[in-house]
Design a protein around this nucleic acid. Structure first.
Lengths: 236, 236
DNA sequence: ACCACTTTGTACAAACCGGTTAATTTGCTA
DNA sequence: TAGCAAATTAACCGGTTTGTACAAAGTGGT
């Protein structure tokens, strides 16, 4: 029927599968992180790549496939950074402190990753479930804490009734929230907490709180009866 | 052309603008919280109301208008519940403790609100910005803390270098994260932390940490040099 | 009885958007 | 250098979804 194929101009182009995939993944990660799963637009992603929409489907099948690969890639990147932390030769309290500080900074440096996790949680972890890549990453973080806690208890300075998982929870909460809720918080309360100094202060306080929780409570030589009571946590 | 108007059956109905708006808002809040802004479907919302899609546009203009009203309503509800807390007649340390506990439970009881805030943050607070209603609502939460801190410092038990806003930040972080990241966390680490007992333990620890941060550090009669050093926070 | 506001219904346009069809180019290799 | 699979381009499709137009009528206050 078509006597004139009218193909696109036969401009030269190079084959570069790996590069194209990488390019798509990078753009998609930014888009998904910025707009969420249903908020991100395939056409928009395509427009921002150096290739075309068709290639996205060629390499990733469909939108969910792309999203899943983006998730895995994000976890891989973050995980790689986390492995570098070496704590075995440090005394336990110092190790806990370093780990907490590192987590705080690490999350701060990977806002896109945080946003992807937020999105995952909004979607009830539907896509997380299908990826076996993700569980071990977080497990690694807790493993570090388990070692620290064991050593700390052996030396006799750590409490017995605070578990590594709980510590991980508290550290994660403050480090994660610090990134995830930055927008709404700074909009309501101003940006003081997010200046360089503000962040340093928050981090220091977070570390102090976590270490304080892990350490055995010491008898205090002075201080009001009230404050001491609260420190032991016996309310009723 | 149409000789037969064929209007809807002339069944009796009552006028109830307030009720209709309320009904729409409630359904929309659940839908937006469950699916996000772009994930929620107007038709789906309409189907779940006791009225029609037409009324949504009649009262709210468009999807964004509806979303904005939902946001404001959510903030209003949550803050209204928060106002009930009366702390002025309680000693400062106890007041701080009660406020922290309350916040933890309150967030836990309003997961939809948490989800809406998550969604807002993913959207970079674009809709929050347009609402002048929301800022003052949140400011109220910190005002309570300011009062508590002032009283605590007057009595001499609170540190001077920990601000009410920082305390609010830490309390919010742990209370918010406890709901927002429940899915991914429990998927990775199991559900122990979310059993009744697990939640009680987390809450108690959170309160202990916050109170511990606010209180003046006391000299310790015994304890390793290491642990004491870390308590003062002087690293380098 | 008037009149503005509220409610009901349906059908539909117009945009949006995920996904596909088909043709063409590249580059390897036999 | 012909053949062929992988890579790439551009145009297109059809379902979905937002939002509207139109038409009619009930409600309630004054």
């Amino acid at each position: 029927m078509d006597d004139k194929p009218a193909n696109g101009r036969s401009g030269g182009w190079k084959q570069d599968p790996a590069g194209v995939r990488k390019n798509i993944l990078a753009v998609a990660m930014a888009e998904f992180a910025a707009n969420g799963l249903s908020g991100a637009r395939i056409d928009e992603i395509a427009a921002k790549t150096s290739t075309s929409k068709r290639m996205i489907y060629y390499y990733f099948g469909d939108k969910e496939g792309l999203y899943r690969r983006v998730l895995e890639e994000a976890y891989r990147e973050v995980r790689a950074g986390e492995q570098e932390l070496e704590l075995d030769h440090v005394p336990p309290v110092e190790a806990l402190k370093l780990l907490a500080e590192f987590t705080f900074d690490h999350h701060s440096r990977h806002p896109d990753f945080i946003r992807l996790v937020m999105i995952e949680n909004i979607h009830h972890g539907a896509y997380l479930e299908r990826s076996e890549l993700i569980r071990p990453l977080n497990a690694g973080a807790v493993q570090k804490l388990e070692t620290i806690c064991r050593r700390g208890r052996e030396v006799g300075v750590f409490r017995e009734d605070v578990t590594p998982l709980q510590l991980h929870w508290h550290i994660s909460a403050m480090s994660f929230f610090n990134v995830s809720n930055r927008t709404s918080f700074s909009h309501i309360f101003g940006t003081d907490l997010f200046s360089a100094g503000g962040q340093e202060a928050l981090k220091k306080q977070m570390v102090e709180m976590v270490v304080g929780l892990a350490l055995k409570p010491h008898r205090r030589s002075r201080g009001s009866a009230e404050s001491r009571r609260h420190f032991r946590g016996d309310t009723k």
